[in-house]
Design a protein around this nucleic acid. Structure first.
Lengths: 152, 152
DNA sequence: CCTCTAAGTTCGAGAAGTGAACCTAGTATT
DNA sequence: AATACTAGGTTCACTTCTCGAACTTAGAGG
């Protein structure tokens, strides 16, 4: 994507990194603790060539690191783990899941549920302000302040 | 994407709707109040043919509705507005923006800021549980509960 | 009836995605 | 030391998506 374009906001830049097909699905698997190539491939259904390219990109962007592991009877291989930068995408994946759960779940309800490990309550994404108010998930009450002059 | 695949979670389904290039960027513009074809085209930089197809898809999926408007000296045309289902994606776009602001903003800082209209404080996305605890944005403390049996 | 305009559509070329087959390099077995 | 095994890729031929530019559409206004 051309970042010299009319509105170079950070959403566009984020999508530059994450916007390709499979990228967010790979991150979903990494959040679920699936660290190996074959496991991610099976869970996402991404073609191997694409998965290889996406993992490479995620590593290059610093969202993911490789780490060596050794299965017995096998040579040493690499597995993929999220960096802090990658883990910080949890709200994105969780927000997507929440929306999907609300509008796209099957008759059995969503297949994965997130809970707070400490108290067992259901976890969700909320829009809040620094004064501690929670805003509706539709974004009502959010005021957009543009700091960008027109940059043609 | 093949939804008969190994792990048909709602994240995958959500990306089925939103995962194509430009879709989320179009939604960003709609959230910012940009409702017209030409305006969205200019702001996102998407090719007209692609934009046309994406808007059509978003309408078909029920995230966006068309509404007639009439500029004086012009014929009646359609503009695009978010439905409730579309507005519910605010947390996704905001989470993306937040991550982009943190890791990808330029030296001048992010070009767009979100504030709570009622109190003026900065708005952000948080991971919270139903007991009112706020969890770190990295997802530490989130427990994944799988309700899906293995569906090969 | 001619022009203007926003909103599309069409087009050929190029980039990206696809599944299947093939390759690679340590491990273990013989 | 030759052989088979395996997770993780790479390569290939094919299809689909994306791109920018040019073209089309249809109502408004002169």
């Amino acid at each position: 994507m051309d970042l010299t374009g009319p509105r170079d906001c950070t959403v566009a830049r984020a999508l530059e990194v994450l916007g390709e097909r499979w990228s967010l699905l790979v991150l979903r698997e990494l959040f679920l603790g699936n660290r190996r190539f074959a496991g991610i491939q099976a869970a996402t259904g991404a073609p191997r060539a694409v998965l290889s390219a996406r993992l490479e990109k995620l590593v290059a962007e610093g969202l993911v690191e490789t780490r060596d592991y050794r299965e017995e009877g096998q040579r040493t291989r690499s597995e993929y783990v999220l960096t802090e930068k990658g883990k910080d995408l949890q709200p994105v994946v969780t927000a997507l899941r929440q929306w999907g759960d609300k509008y796209l779940a099957g008759p059995d309800g969503p297949p994965v549920e997130l809970r707070h490990r400490d108290c067992g309550e259901r976890v969700r994404v909320a829009i809040v302000c620094d004064a501690g108010h929670e805003l509706p998930g539709t974004g009502r009450g959010v005021q957009v302040v543009r700091r960008d002059a027109v940059r043609a």
